[in-house]
Structure formats: structure tokens, C-alpha cells
């Protein structure tokens, strides 16, 4: 059984339908990349899972327990990192974590050690500074510390990396990846590279539905096609080659972009490359470069969301 399940989940704000009978399941132990364009409804979905928004219809279950709006029982299984976490500026990081831990109901002694290890882990162990002086990155790290403090079964992160600098982003992704096997992670983003780096499951949200939801490898097999790309010095040459390629039966789909010619193919690449070289020789065309592009999440995403 999946740790998190959404059935027929629907949500509208006024006349605008955000989620349309959303079906979604996150298996226990997965690091689930929740992908979608800005405004696709990722944050709404997460807030629904946390009981912060009211569902119009449908059900949400965490570990078999239904989520209730305004209720708190399922929240003891979850940890949440909002996109812009808000803290009490007059507390220090340790005091804030203590407040969170006490609310979760952790016993005093265990809380002490956990706060210490957690602060070291996120690199905030130094001192008695109040949160009001924290930078954006420090706040984000405190955010992950408070989300992980109760050792949740399900960690929900809303766009956690978009506000961070490259180094902070790197550290954050490594931290998430280190949770593999201990905690199930649901993590929304529009940065596909992040998903490819650490996620094993991917769901793509578009027009209020989860258009695909599978493991990353299965998706790549199903959707993405490897491509061959040739780059020419002149647009004219590129166009002539593209026409010749398109005329060949069963080679694949040809697209052009100024000086580039792309061929999406199936099956083994080598015979295709050899025949393409022959074609180039026949036509007396010399490309500047040729490369083979492995299937990427970006391709899948664009294909699913349906944009050129």
C-alpha cells in the first residue's frame, strides 16, 4: 500500500479549477519529484495533504488515515517545509526547534540531543543568534531542520531549492538524498535537473491532473526518445539535410532549429549514424558537430505538458 494516496481530489478557487479529480499515490520510501509549471497546483496539492486547504471532493489518506481540513492527526506523520518558511524572529534557532519538538510531543531528553544533531546537520549549530538576523539560506536550512525534527514518515518540501544559491542547492539536494530509505519525500519543483538528480519517482501535474506518475526509469523508457543532433554552419545546409532525413522511411521524427537538425529515433543508434554519414557524404554536406542526446526528463515533461 502507498504511504500517501489521493483519490478523485478536486479543488477550485472561485471559478478556477485547480485540481481535477487528481489521482496520486506515493509509495513508502520513495523520493517523489512533483513536477509542474508555476501555477499548476503543486502548492495547493501539498497544502491539501497537510490539511491547510479544504478539499472540494475526493479523499486524501496518509498511511491509511484520512486527512481532515483543520485537523492535526495525520500531521504527526508529516514534516513540511513551505516554500518561504516563516519563523518567530525573536527566538533563536535552538529555541524554535525546541518549540516545534515540544508540540510534536518529544520527551525532553531526546529533544535535547535531536536539536543538537539537527542543528549541526544543517550547519546552524553556532550560537545564540536570533532568527531575525538569518539570511534566506539560513532560514531554509532551519526550515528543513524543523521539518525533519519529528523524524516524519513523509517529508513534504515545496520548491525548496528555488530560493537557494548553487552551493546551498547542492547541499540541500544531498541532504534530501541522504534520507533515502528512512523517509518518504514528496518534493515539488520546476527545476527538472534537481528531480533527475535525486528522485526515483516522478509525477507531472498539468491541468489539474497527474498526467504521468511512475518511476523515472519507466518514464524514460515510455516517453523519452534519444536524439541525434547535427549542427551546421549555415541554415540552408541544415534545412537541406533535414529534408533529406525526413524523406528516409522509418528513421524517426525530424525537427529543425536554425542551424540544428534533430532526429528522434528508436532502437540502436549506430546503424542510423552510419547511414546518416553516408547521406551527408552523398549530399556533400559537412556538419560542424554531431552529438547523441540521452533521454531527459525535460523531453518527457515537454511531451506530457504538450509544448513544442
Amino acid at each position: 500500500m502507498s504511504l500517501l494516496e489521493l483519490h478523485q481530489a478536486g479543488k477550485s478557487f472561485g471559478s478556477q479549477q485547480v485540481l481535477n479529480n487528481l489521482e496520486m499515490a506515493v509509495p513508502e520510501g520513495a523520493i517523489f519529484g512533483f513536477v509542474g509549471e508555476n501555477g499548476a497546483g503543486k502548492t495547493t496539492t501539498m497544502r491539501l495533504i497537510l490539511g491547510l486547504e479544504q478539499l472540494d471532493h475526493g479523499t486524501i489518506q496518509i498511511a491509511g488515515r484520512p486527512v481532515e481540513y483543520g485537523g492535526a492527526t495525520t500531521n504527526q506523520l508529516t514534516g513540511y517545509l513551505p516554500d518561504v518558511p516563516a519563523f518567530y524572529d525573536y527566538l533563536t534557532a535552538a529555541e524554535y526547534l525546541r518549540l516545534c519538538g515540544q508540540i510534536t510531543g518529544l520527551p525532553q531528553g531526546e529533544l535535547d540531543t535531536r536539536i543538537k544533531t539537527m542543528l549541526t546537520r544543517v550547519g546552524l549549530a553556532t550560537g545564540s543568534r536570533r532568527i531575525k538576523g538569518f539570511s534566506r539560506g539560513m532560514r531554509q536550512r532551519l526550515g528543513i531542520a524543523q521539518a525533519l525534527l519529528n523524524q516524519p514518515r513523509l517529508l513534504i518540501c515545496d520548491e525548496p531549492t528555488s530560493a537557494l544559491d548553487p552551493e546551498g542547492r547542492n547541499q540541500f539536494l544531498e541532504l534530501l538524498a541522504s534520507l533515502r530509505g528512512q523517509t518518504t519525500v514528496l518534493f515539488s519543483t520546476h527545476i527538472l535537473a534537481d528531480v533527475e538528480r535525486i528522485c526515483d519517482h516522478v509525477g507531472i501535474l498539468d491541468q489539474g491532473r497527474l498526467q504521468v506518475c511512475d518511476t523515472l526509469t519507466a518514464l524514460k523508457q515510455q516517453y523519452a526518445q534519444p536524439q541525434l543532433i547535427w549542427r551546421f554552419a549555415q541554415v540552408d545546409a541544415a534545412n537541406r539535410f533535414a529534408q533529406a532525413l525526413a524523406a528516409q522511411p522509418n528513421w524517426g521524427q525530424v525537427t529543425t532549429a536554425t542551424q540544428q537538425v534533430r532526429l528522434a529515433y528508436q532502437g540502436p543508434a549506430e546503424p542510423l549514424i552510419r547511414r546518416a554519414w553516408q547521406l551527408l557524404l552523398q549530399m556533400d554536406l559537412t556538419p560542424l558537430a554531431m552529438e547523441q542526446v540521452a533521454p531527459s526528463l525535460e523531453q518527457i515533461f515537454l511531451k506530457v505538458v504538450g509544448q513544442p
Binding site: N75, Q76, T78, G79, Y80, P82, C100, I103, Q146
Partner: peptide
């Protein structure tokens, strides 16, 4: 408005 209660409520703080 500041959103400071989100973290606490999602930790099981009764409203």
C-alpha cells in the same frame, strides 16, 4: 498573515 502558524499546525498543534 506572516504564516508563522503553518509550521506549528502542521506539527499537530491543535488550533
Amino acid at each position: 498573515n506572516r504564516g508563522t502558524l503553518v509550521n506549528l499546525v502542521t506539527k499537530g498543534l491543535p488550533r
